[in-house]
């Protein structure tokens, strides 16, 4: 026996929480900012092109301003010189925001275990999904996007996101 709005309007309405309604709407409308620095960025070009076509998953509106994006895709090696810029870009994005670390370099420094390469971007900014590969195939990028969609659907934004604390090596 339905109660509340459903009792009055029958099957013509579905009740939900505000959070899950937002998640449902957001799921197929992620706006990525591609922080592409190296080889992985060339593979992202394939992800956006006709054959792999990221727009099938609603994320083709690639933003070139971090202020308009809610998904940061870090595709490529991040050097120590680049790190403060990556952090600035991340800080400029509005909450809620998600981060994909694409490729071996962004995840761990890859095979550049040396004086100039940051050994994983999670020392600077929080990461939601890591993608393996050097570079990852386009399918792996899409898989990461699906993983982000799932993460955000399962989250409660106000509790899980806004109250999250992250302190990286560049945070004073």
């Amino acid at each position: 026996m339905a109660v509340g709005a459903e009792a009055i309007f029958g099957d013509s309405v579905i009740t939900s929480t505000l959070e899950s309604a937002l998640s449902w709407a957001r799921e197929s409308s992620m706006w990525p900012y591609v922080f592409g620095t190296a080889c992985c960025a060339i593979e992202f070009m394939s992800v956006a092109s006709s054959k792999y076509d990221i727009s099938r998953f609603g994320a083709e509106v690639v933003r070139f301003s971090p202020r308009q994006a809610d998904l940061l895709i870090v595709a490529g090696t991040i050097s120590y010189k680049q790190a403060p810029i990556l952090k600035k870009i991340y800080d400029q994005m509005c909450e809620p925001k998600w981060v994909i670390s694409a490729g071996a370099c962004a995840c761990s420094g890859g095979f550049y275990d040396n004086y100039t390469t940051l050994q994983g971007i999670d020392a600077i900014i929080p990461v939601d999904v890591y993608v393996a590969g050097c570079p990852p195939r386009p399918e792996a990028f899409l898989d990461a996007l699906l993983a982000i969609q799932k993460i955000q659907a399962d989250e409660r934004l106000l509790d899980d996101r806004a109250k999250r604390v992250f302190k990286g090596r560049l945070d004073a």
């Binding site: 090696t77 010189k81 680049q82 810029i85 550049y112 040396n114 004086y115 100039t116």
Partner: peptide, 11 residues
């Protein structure tokens, strides 16, 4: 430049 300096020569 140098934002993608990855230490190729040292490696």
């Amino acid at each position: 430049i140098g934002y993608l300096h990855r230490g190729f020569e040292k490696s």
